[in-house]
C-alpha cells in the first residue's frame, strides 16, 4: 500500500469521514508493517483498536455464567407451574381445616356441653351415701303413694266374696 494512499485515508479517518472498510485497511496496515517514522505516532492508536477488539474479562467466564442463568430461567418456568398447583391444593386443604375448626369451635360446642356430666363428689363413699339417701327418699314417697292402693286390694277381696255368693 503506498504512502500517499495511507495519508489520504488517515485524513479521512481523523475527519470522521472514513468508511468501515477504509478503517479496516488502516488497522491492517498499522498492525503488520513497520511504519515510517512520521506515522509511528498514529500506529499505537490503530494497534490498540485491534487489541481491544479481542479483549475479554480474563478473570471469569461471563458467557458460561449467562448460559447457566438462561438454563435456570427455563427450570424456573416449570417450577412455576408446579408451584401453582401446589398452592391450589394447599389452599383447599387449608379451607377444609378451617371449616372443621369452625364447626367444632362454634357449632358443635353447645351440644357437647348439654350432655356433659360432671362429677360433683370427689369421695365415692359420700357420693354413694348421698345417692342412697336420695333413692330412699324417693322410695319412701313412692311407698306412701302405693299404700293407698292397698285399699283397692281389700276392695277387690270383698268384691270377689260378693260375686262368689251370687
Amino acid at each position: 500500500m503506498n504512502l500517499n494512499e495511507i495519508e489520504a485515508l488517515l485524513k479521512r479517518f481523523y475527519d470522521g469521514e472514513s468508511s468501515l472498510e477504509e478503517e479496516q485497511r488502516l488497522r491492517d496496515y498499522f498492525n503488520q508493517e513497520i511504519v515510517p517514522d512520521h506515522l509511528s505516532s498514529h500506529q499505537e492508536q490503530f494497534r490498540y483498536y485491534n487489541f481491544a477488539r479481542e479483549e475479554k474479562n480474563p478473570q471469569s467466564d461471563l458467557e458460561s455464567d449467562l448460559i447457566k442463568k438462561i438454563g435456570q430461567e427455563n427450570i424456573g418456568k416449570t417450577y412455576g407451574k408446579r408451584h401453582r398447583t401446589f398452592y391450589f391444593i394447599t389452599g383447599i386443604a387449608a379451607s377444609i381445616l378451617i371449616f372443621i375448626g369452625v364447626y367444632f369451635q362454634f357449632i358443635a360446642k353447645p351440644n357437647n356441653t348439654a350432655y356433659n356430666i360432671e362429677d360433683t363428689y370427689e369421695d365415692p363413699e359420700a357420693a354413694y351415701a348421698e345417692a342412697k339417701k336420695a333413692l330412699l327418699l324417693v322410695s319412701e314417697k313412692f311407698n306412701a303413694g302405693v299404700n293407698d292402693f292397698n285399699k283397692f286390694s281389700s276392695f277387690n277381696q270383698y268384691k270377689e266374696l260378693i260375686t262368689r255368693k251370687n
Binding site: 479517518f13 481523523y14 475527519d15 470522521g16 469521514e17 505516532s41 499505537e44 492508536q45
Partner: peptide, 20 residues
C-alpha cells in the same frame, strides 16, 4: 456522531504525538 468521533480521534492522535 461524526463530529464527536473526529474530535476524539484527533485527541488520541495529539496526546500520543505529544508523548512520542
Amino acid at each position: 456522531i461524526r463530529v464527536n468521533l473526529s474530535r476524539a480521534r484527533k485527541k488520541v492522535r495529539d496526546s500520543l504525538t505529544k508523548k512520542y
